[in-house]
Amino acid sequence: MIPKKVNTVQEALNGIENGMTIMFGGFGLCGIPENSIAELVKKETNNLTCISNNAGIDDFGLGLLLQKKQIKKMISSYVGENAEFERQMLSGELEVNLIPQGTLAERCRAAQAGIPAFFTPAGFGTEVATGKETREFNGKMHIMEHAFKADFAIVKAWKGDTAGNLIFKGTARNFNPCMCGAAKITIAEVEELVEAGTLDPNQVNIPGILVQRIFQGEKYEKRIEQRTVRKK
């Protein structure tokens, strides 16, 4: 067993510097690495390029980094659930690159899997295709998209073991598995960290080879963005 466990979030985030490109797992506020984001706020790391489907809300998720102006550029598919984001984008302080969600996921997966580029029909004929190579396959037009290059990927899983194996829960899975191994170093924070040998290998979603550092988050708030219910 190759040990991946680190004891603290500080140790996990060691080496993250100003100006780096970082992937963050999560969809909305679901399955985001809360503890790592809180620590990045404390560390005051700035000029970051963030690859993340969304940008959090004003006072949670990546919104916390936005508030402190630590983000230089966002690469996302859907943003603007927060006023500060809008203000920074319109004033030109924040650079925003919007890309189709499936393309975002596949650019992560391609980086993980060592595929430098791929063709997708998403965005053909739209401004997303501007400047990109196009090609016809089976009578349909596609555009070429490249794998992401990132310094760190920070993901959140439900359970993990000291070998870095991960298990996800519900739709908190989302982009997290796609980002494992898609950057030079992958950091996983988990709700429950167990000794290697405890998890059933049949149930492992992401093998530890794709994770370099793993730690148990101190606490999880798991905020709900849209609480929708029905009456009993």
């Binding site: 603007g80 189709p100 997708t120 998403a122 965005g123």
Partner: peptide
Amino acid sequence: KMVKGMGGAMD
């Protein structure tokens, strides 16, 4: 106007 993004619509 404020642009929020295409999400999964283009795919």
